[in-house]
């Protein structure tokens, strides 16, 4: 992989329908944006706006879509080796120790044990889990498990790190601290990252640019540049500029989120007929 083959993720007019005929629903509607090398981009939108569908398309898990997702010049229609995915659900393997979890992608490639453990150790240290290599996931907290997943993805040195709400299940304080960790890693590796999230603070805290999506069908609402200085830490959440960005994006998002909420209420009302 030469240095000239610059990673450059392009989402070009992507459209995804589920079902066919008159019952088809459009989950992602003509989305276009891109991620430049070394950049941290977040996609934010209310629950149910098709963010996860977009994540699955970019990760190559949903091959059947219209438009193009390109890495370099390649159109993605299957998992691409230069994209590393981190999933929203807890995804460590409970039957493997931390080190064997992290070394897993290297094991698949047939890297000899000593070498893959060496490399895995490097990333375990990077996510701040030194000393836990021999532990099993059941002995770790939720935040630690998510860091194991991140290390497992980083170990294959993906050109693009693709994360789907990796901290959704964690409490706010842990989330902020893990945000610091991500900022640090991003700095250290100059890691091109695309984060899918519904969390405003998280998006502003971490991103260079934020892509705001509409609720159903998921369209591009607008792209906001976050001009907060780097290197950043979670302390940035106290600054005026931060508050300003959050307010700005919330005013965009509010309308979408409330229509999402109303939708959810109607569905619930329809589904939960009174019993008896």
């Amino acid at each position: 992989m030469s240095a000239s083959a610059e990673p450059y993720l392009v989402i070009d007019n992507v459209l995804k329908r589920f079902g066919s005929g008159p019952e088809a629903t459009v989950a992602v509607d003509h989305m276009s944006f891109d991620v430049k090398p070394g950049e941290f981009v977040s996609v934010i939108g209310p629950s149910g706006c098709g963010k996860s569908t977009l994540f699955n398309i970019i990760g190559g898990l949903l091959g059947d879509y219209e438009g193009e997702v390109r890495v370099g010049a390649e159109r993605i229609s299957g998992p691409h080796p230069s994209i590393g995915m981190v999933f929203q659900e807890e995804s460590t393997f409970p039957w493997r120790s931390v080190i064997d979890n992290v070394a897993f992608p290297l094991e698949l490639r047939g890297v000899p044990k000593a070498e893959r453990h060496d490399r895995a150790h490097h990333f375990i240290d990077m996510v701040g889990l030194s000393g836990f290599a021999k532990h099993y996931p059941s002995q770790l907290s939720g935040g630690m498990k998510q860091r194991v997943s991140i290390a497992r993805t980083l170990v294959s040195e993906p050109q693009i790190l693709l994360m789907d709400e990796p901290f959704a299940a964690l409490d706010e304080q842990t989330r902020l601290l893990l945000g610091d960790k991500i900022l640090q890693i991003q700095q250290q590796l100059n890691q091109t990252t695309l984060l899918i999230t519904h969390n405003l603070t998280e998006a502003v805290q971490l991103s260079d640019r934020i892509v705001v999506m509409t609720y159903r069908p998921g369209r591009l609402k607008r792209i906001v540049n976050i001009d907060l200085p780097r290197p950043r830490t979670s302390e940035v959440v106290g600054s005026d500029a931060f508050g300003h960005y959050v307010a700005e994006i919330w005013s965009d998002l509010r309308e979408e989120a409330s229509s999402g909420m109303m939708d959810a209420e109607t569905t619930a009302a329809r589904r939960n007929r009174p019993r008896g």
């Binding site: 992989m1 083959a5 190559g60 898990l61 091959g63 390649e74 299957g78 691409h80 080796p81």
Partner: peptide, 11 residues
Amino acid sequence: MAATGTVTARK
């Protein structure tokens, strides 16, 4: 890594 072509999922 090939710069062109399509990456397909394994069957």
